[in-house]
């Protein structure tokens, strides 16, 4: 049976522990929110595919969560490999998480050279009257990064605010950059995934 395979775009979540990466991930996967950190419920789940329609094209965003590795140790460099986009998350009510953005940015440009980078200020519901991180702060940061940042979003996982908009916009960005890239690039530089024997024959060996 001939089916057209929609290319997957690996999108990774980065940022300090506790800024809401897993909450974003949970909103993305099943649109729920939990207040207590109930790690148990996400055990074993670390990436999720979702299809977005951009114009007349379909695009599959594959969102990856860190699995909590950054809590004490560092994230493995392989987490970044093959990423098409990285969402660096900070918390709008926590200026420390904002100040560590540059470190995460450095990690992304080091380990995922070709990834498009997006900035996400989460917990907009906690912003309050006197925000810990102001719009001016964010603007200054983006300027300092010499246009490395492809987009900036504010979200609230608690209120489900701005999240769908963010992912849809990221899908548009990736569709745009893919158009030129896919036409130029041949697939011969890529490897293949190892699959169980039965799937292998059904799908062919190249899944890139």
């Amino acid at each position: 049976m001939a089916t057209i395979k929609i290319p997957e775009q690996k999108v990774i979540l980065c940022g300090e522990y506790g800024v809401g990466k897993s909450s974003l991930f949970r909103r993305f996967t099943n649109n729920t929110f939990v207040t207590a950190t109930d790690r148990q419920s996400t055990l074993g789940l670390d990436h999720f595919d979702k299809t977005y329609n951009v114009g007349d094209k379909s695009l599959k965003l594959q969102l990856w969560d860190t699995g909590g590795m950054e809590r004490i140790a560092s994230i493995t460099s392989s987490y970044y490999k093959f990423a098409e986009a990285a969402i660096i998350v900070f918390s709008l009510d926590n200026s420390a998480s904002f100040h560590s953005l540059s470190q995460h940015l450095l990690d992304v440009v080091t380990y995922a050279e070709s990834a498009k980078i997006f900035l996400c200020g989460n917990k907009s519901d906690l912003e309050g009257e006197k925000p810990q991180v102001t719009d001016a702060d964010i603007e200054t940061f983006c300027e300092q990064c010499h246009n490395l940042i492809s987009g900036v979003y504010k979200t609230s996982c608690k209120l489900a605010d701005g999240i769908e908009e963010m992912f849809t916009d990221i899908a548009c960005h990736l569709a745009e950059s893919n158009r030129s890239r896919l036409e130029l690039q041949t697939m011969k530089h890529h490897g293949f995934k190892v699959l169980p024997a039965d799937e292998q024959t059904a799908e062919g060996s190249c899944l890139c």
């Binding site: 790690r39 996400t42 055990l43 699995g67 909590g68 809590r71 140790a73 493995t76 392989s78 987490y79």
Partner: peptide
């Protein structure tokens, strides 16, 4: 024979990630 892109160092990292997403705690 097969060989992983980016070298064999990717293999332990992959299994470490598996451990982490199943609740394993990491300290380097």
């Amino acid at each position: 024979y097969l060989y992983p892109m980016y070298g064999l160092g990717e293999l332990p990292q992959g299994f470490a990630r598996l451990s982490a997403i199943y609740g394993g705690t990491y300290m380097l």
